[in-house]
Measured scan of single mutants.
Amino acid sequence: MSSSSWLLLSLVAVTAAQSTIEEQAKTFLDKFNHEAEDLFYQSSLASWNYNTNITEENVQNMNNAGDKWSAFLKEQSTLAQMYPLQEIQNLTVKLQLQALQQNGSSVLSEDKSKRLNTILNTMSTIYSTGKVCNPDNPQECLLLEPGLNEIMANSLDYNERLWAWESWRSEVGKQLRPLYEEYVVLKNEMARANHYEDYGDYWRGDYEVNGVDGYDYSRGQLIEDVEHTFEEIKPLYEHLHAYVRAKLMNAYPSYISPIGCLPAHLLGDMWGRFWTNLYSLTVPFGQKPNIDVTDAMVDQAWDAQRIFKEAEKFFVSVGLPNMTQGFWENSMLTDPGNVQKAVCHPTAWDLGKGDFRILMCTKVTMDDFLTAHHEMGHIQYDMAYAAQPFLLRNGANEGFHEAVGEIMSLSAATPKHLKSIGLLSPDFQEDNETEINFLLKQALTIVGTLPFTYMLEKWRWMVFKGEIPKDQWMKKWWEMKREIVGVVEPVPHDETYCDPASLFHVSNDYSF
């Protein structure tokens, strides 16, 4: 037999072997998808029940369902290793196997995995149920939502704001400190077992692309791009910072340095994350009609249902689908009040099986009107990829998912749209002054938050990498806050605090 014939037969044999492996992989994935749908849905439903009704029974049910899901994933991840990716030609099959071969938290021992889940659930519970009591009246206690958040959004009393700011960190942050220390250790162990340098590197892996249509993007490039983007917006932020400082000097004349940092408790919310609520103090042309339409919403008797129905109309107007019937029947759109304790931070849920929901303790404000559009943007994205195989139902990356939500809320905030839905009067006219007011309001929300987020994530990356010793977490946190964000702590904090974890995203294990 000629050498060319042998070569042809060899190629046929290799192709047949690849085809056999690929067919086996497809069969394996079909079985996995069928089983995963049910187990993931049960786990998601148990998590939803806990988040909307925080009880010991629900946390136990959530843990049990989560353990079943984790055990299943660990088993299936091991089985998926049997299919070598280099022998799979079908890109859809390869991407699913690649996702499943990534072990995630299931790489930890059973004891450590359970401990990590306990830590995460405990931190979430402390954050959502933590109360601050009035020292003069111990029976008068406030949760973060709505009590403390209400103070931080609306109060102009310097000392009341300081009390709310400090009490939240003292009551909740200190409880979270030992848990967060354990969390860092276990998450790093999980990341390294998955061949990442640390948990920050694991997060950045979400943005990594290897040879898809000839395109590559590394975790290191992400760090470079983040640094570059921050340097680009820094001059604009510094101008905004100086303008806000001048306006705060008028409101709090004896508390603000004309050349120094801004006190952290005066920036519009509990964390200084969004400066939106400073608009009334900083509006350049106050004689113009108010483009913050909160009062109009209240006057027109809007409620949470109306807010979300208007958001749905907005999405339908640009060619996107209505929310499902189940969305309206199962979402929690208002604070249950004293009936039950719930996690009030707005979140969009894709539970699986076409079950999409939003959890939000909606208030009738323009801020929540825009947040509703943001969260519904997440749901629209979830619905758009719902037909994909189970392992591919995700956003391109976390940042893109947020961008989908944010672009919709930005569009909904324009005076033209607000006028079209009757929240600005029919005779409202846009001119240079109203446009400047609008742009300032947008800058308070968007530009003001960028250094906050950059600095927070930089601190977390450094902590996970071990570049900040545990006994210097708070020292470095406030050094970076002053240097990068231009914000100063109103009272000193020692290493018993854990100020970063006083933010939902940190205590609940979300990256930005």
Rank of each mutant, 00 (worst) to 15 (best):
Trp69Asp: 04
Glu56Met: 12
Gln42Cys: 15
Glu75Leu: 14
Thr27Ala: 15
Gln42Ser: 04
Trp69Ser: 13
Asn61Phe: 13
Phe72Asn: 06
Glu37Ser: 01
Gln42Leu: 15
Glu22Tyr: 06
Leu45Ser: 02
Phe40Cys: 14
Glu37His: 01
Met62Ala: 10
Trp69Asn: 12
Pro84Gly: 07
Gln89Leu: 11
Gln24Leu: 03
Gln24Thr: 15
Asn33Tyr: 03
Gln60Val: 13
Lys26Pro: 02
Asn49Met: 09
Gln89Met: 08
Gln24Tyr: 00
Asp38Gln: 02
Tyr41Lys: 00
Glu37Arg: 01
His34Phe: 00
Glu56Pro: 12
Gln42Gly: 05
Met62Val: 05
Asp67Gly: 07
Asn63Gln: 14
Ala46Asn: 06
Gln76Ser: 13
Leu29Arg: 00
Leu29Lys: 00
Gln60Thr: 03
Gln102Arg: 06
Phe28Ser: 02
Asn33Phe: 01
Asp30Ala: 02
Leu29Trp: 02
Asn90Val: 15
Trp69Arg: 14
Glu56Ser: 08
Val93Ala: 05
Gln42Ala: 02
Gln98Ser: 14
Gln76His: 09
Gln102Leu: 08
Gln60Tyr: 12
His34Ile: 02
Thr92Met: 15
Gln102Asp: 11
Ile21Arg: 00
Lys68Glu: 04
Val59Gly: 11
Thr92His: 15
Glu56Val: 10
Gln76Tyr: 15
Asp67His: 09
Gln96Ile: 03
Glu57Ile: 04
Glu75Ser: 15
Lys26Trp: 08
Ala25Ser: 06
Tyr83Arg: 02
Ala46His: 08
Ile54His: 04
Gln42Val: 15
Lys68Ala: 07
Trp69Gly: 06
Thr92Gln: 15
Gln98Lys: 10
Gln42Glu: 02
Asn63Trp: 11
Asn61Gln: 14
Ala46Cys: 04
Phe40Gln: 13
Ile21Lys: 02
Leu79Thr: 15
Glu75Ile: 14
Ile21Pro: 05
Glu56Leu: 10
His34Val: 15
Leu95Gln: 09
Met62Glu: 02
Met82Ala: 02
Asp67Ala: 10
Gln98Val: 14
Asn90Trp: 15
Leu79Lys: 05
Gln102Asn: 11
Leu91Gly: 14
Asp67Gln: 09
Phe72Ser: 04
Met82Cys: 15
Met82Asn: 10
Gln42Met: 15
Phe40Val: 07
Val93Ser: 05
Leu29Gln: 02
Phe28His: 00
Leu79Asn: 05
Phe40Glu: 14
Ala71Cys: 09
Tyr41Gly: 00
Ile21Ala: 03
Phe28Lys: 00
Ala25Gly: 07
Glu35Lys: 03
Gln24Ile: 00
Asp30Pro: 01
Glu22Leu: 08
Ala46Pro: 01
Asn90Tyr: 15
Leu39Ile: 14
Asn33Thr: 11
Phe72Tyr: 15
Asn49Glu: 14
Ile21Ser: 04
Tyr50Thr: 03
Glu23Phe: 15
Leu95Met: 13
Met62Phe: 06
Ile54Gln: 07
Asp67Phe: 11
Asp30Trp: 01
Leu79Ile: 15
Lys26Ala: 15
Ile54Ala: 07
Ala46Ser: 06
Met82Gln: 02
Ile54Asn: 05
Tyr50Asn: 02
Asp67Thr: 13
Ala25Met: 02
Leu95Tyr: 10
Ser19Trp: 14
Phe72Gln: 01
His34Asn: 04
Glu35Gly: 09
Ala25Cys: 05
Phe72Glu: 02
Asn49His: 05
Met62Arg: 09
Gln96Arg: 04
Leu39Met: 13
Ala71Phe: 09
Met62His: 04
Asn63Met: 13
Trp69Cys: 15
Ile21Cys: 03
Gln102Pro: 14
Glu37Val: 02
Gln96Gly: 03
Val59Asp: 13
Trp69Phe: 06
Leu29Met: 03
Asn63His: 07
Asp38Asn: 03
Leu29Val: 01
Leu45His: 03
Leu29Glu: 06
Gln102Gly: 12
Glu22Cys: 05
Asn61His: 11
Glu22Ser: 04
Gln96Glu: 08
Ser19Ile: 14
Leu45Arg: 01
Gln42Tyr: 00
Gln42Asp: 00
Gln42Trp: 00
Tyr41Val: 01
Asn51Pro: 01
Glu56His: 05
Ile21Tyr: 04
Glu23Met: 14
Glu35Asp: 15
Leu95Pro: 06
Gln98Met: 14
Phe72Asp: 02
Ile21Asp: 04
Glu35Arg: 02
Asn63Gly: 07
Thr20Cys: 05
Glu22Pro: 03
Leu79Asp: 05
Asn61Leu: 13
Tyr41Pro: 00
Leu73Gln: 10
Tyr83Asp: 01
Asn61Thr: 12
Tyr50Ile: 02
Thr27Ile: 07
Gln98Leu: 13
Thr92Gly: 15
Phe28Pro: 02
Gln98Phe: 05
Phe72Gly: 02
Ile21Gln: 04
Ala46Asp: 05
Lys74Gln: 09
Ala25Leu: 02
Glu57Gly: 07
Thr27Glu: 01
Glu23Gln: 14
Lys31Trp: 15
Gln60Ala: 12
Gln76Leu: 13
Ala71Gln: 11
Gln24Ala: 01
Glu57Asn: 02
Asp38Trp: 00
Val93Glu: 05
Gln96Ala: 04
Asp30Phe: 00
Asp38Val: 01
Asn64Phe: 11
Phe72Lys: 14
Asn49Arg: 01
Phe72Pro: 00
Lys26His: 07
Glu22Thr: 14
Gln42Arg: 14
Glu23Asp: 12
Thr27Lys: 15
Thr92Asp: 15
Asp30Leu: 04
Ala46Gly: 04
Glu35Leu: 06
Ala65Asp: 04
Asn51Ser: 04
Leu29Gly: 00
Leu73Trp: 13
Asn64Ala: 14
Thr92Asn: 15
Leu45Trp: 01
Thr20Phe: 02
Thr92Lys: 15
Asn33Ser: 14
Glu37Pro: 04
Asp30Gly: 02
Asn49Phe: 01
Glu57Tyr: 05
Trp69His: 03
Leu45Tyr: 03
Val59Leu: 13
Leu91His: 14
Tyr41Asp: 01
Glu56Trp: 10
Glu23Pro: 07
Lys26Asn: 11
Pro84Ala: 08
Pro84Phe: 04
Leu29Asn: 00
Thr27Val: 04
Asn49Ser: 10
Asn90Glu: 15
Tyr50Gln: 04
Leu45Gln: 01
Tyr41His: 03
Phe40Arg: 15
Met82Asp: 04
Ala25Glu: 01
Phe28Ala: 01
Phe28Ile: 02
Gln76Phe: 15
Ile54Asp: 05
Asn64Asp: 12
Leu29Ser: 02
Asp30Ser: 01
His34Lys: 01
Lys74Val: 09
Ile54Glu: 07
Ala25Thr: 15
Tyr41Gln: 04
Met62Tyr: 05
Thr27Met: 15
Trp48Gly: 00
